[in-house]
Amino acid sequence: MLTTFSSPRADRLLSWALRLAGAMAVLVLGGIVLVLLIQSAPFLFDHGSGLWRNDWQPGQARYGMAAMVAGSIVVSVLALLMAGPLAVLLAAWLRYFAPVLRRPTLALVELMAGIPSVVYGLWGMLVLVPWINQWAPPGASWLAASLVLALMILPLALLVTDTALDQLPARYLQAGQALSLSRVGMLRRILLPQAGPSIVSGLVLQFGRALGETMAVLMVAGNVVQWPTSLFDPVRTLTANIALEMAYATGDHRVALFASGLLLLLVTALLLLLSWRLRGEKHALA
């Protein structure tokens, strides 16, 4: 029999180290928010109403972000609509219909999740964009950006769904078997509804990741500031705009880019709060 002895001094050191790490994380996040607020506040007071125009022309002191906000949202929403259902179906199929393939597939998925976003962007630029260009020029478009983002968020969405299904109590499966439900019936009526809040919470976080992606979208979206009216229209997202223009921006132009960063931070915070709320509802139901 093994007995583990713990030193009170070591416990105190570990406790303080954890508190220090937590405090540093809060300070870093608070510092980011503070810098964005300090940089953006004067501009928002002077030009706040103009941010919702469609024209982004810094040389003429026009800083309308509406088209780029729309571009960010439609690209991310389409990516989530493509990756989310596919991730849920694949996770359920691997766990309940093809358990032999589950481990090797999840290992491959974990490898995909670790691929840098610029690699996905390079693949999209060299393979996907020319392929779309054959059907609807110029190829770099809303559709190309959403497809690349869907491929990027699919691995983590699948892993989140698999984890949510794995955490379900065994009694749910036993109840379905006692009712003589088929595996499809158990999934549709018992398992997926019970795991639903955790799955949706994970998908909300993946939507936030898609919304904040920069390099891959910049390489395949076309980067034209316009309202997207077709899947094949080039679009520009807020993150791509910051990456493209921050290097040479000065004056109000530079501050406008900080304001767009603050807007992205607020949207991400709202998505995080929504994810926490969904998880809280899941625990309340349990």
Score class of each variant (00 low, 15 high):
L29Q: 02
A91C: 03
W131P: 00
W52V: 08
G71R: 01
L36K: 00
D55P: 06
L211P: 03
P155L: 04
I242V: 14
P137E: 08
H253G: 04
L80Y: 02
L179A: 12
V267F: 05
S182R: 03
A178M: 08
L20C: 13
S275D: 07
G64K: 04
M246K: 03
W93L: 10
S141G: 03
P104S: 09
A83Q: 01
A10F: 04
W93V: 08
Q39M: 11
L238Q: 05
M68F: 02
P116Y: 12
A247I: 11
P228V: 08
N54H: 14
W131S: 07
T268Y: 07
L231H: 10
V255L: 12
L151R: 02
V35E: 13
M1I: 14
W131M: 13
A170E: 14
T268Q: 05
P155Y: 00
V26M: 14
S275L: 04
I190R: 01
Q39W: 06
Y248G: 11
L80W: 04
K282I: 03
G84V: 02
R19M: 06
T239Q: 05
L128R: 07
L187K: 00
V74Y: 12
G124V: 07
V33A: 15
A144C: 13
W93N: 07
L122H: 03
T250E: 15
R19Q: 14
W16M: 00
Q177K: 13
L106M: 13
S180E: 12
P234C: 04
S117C: 08
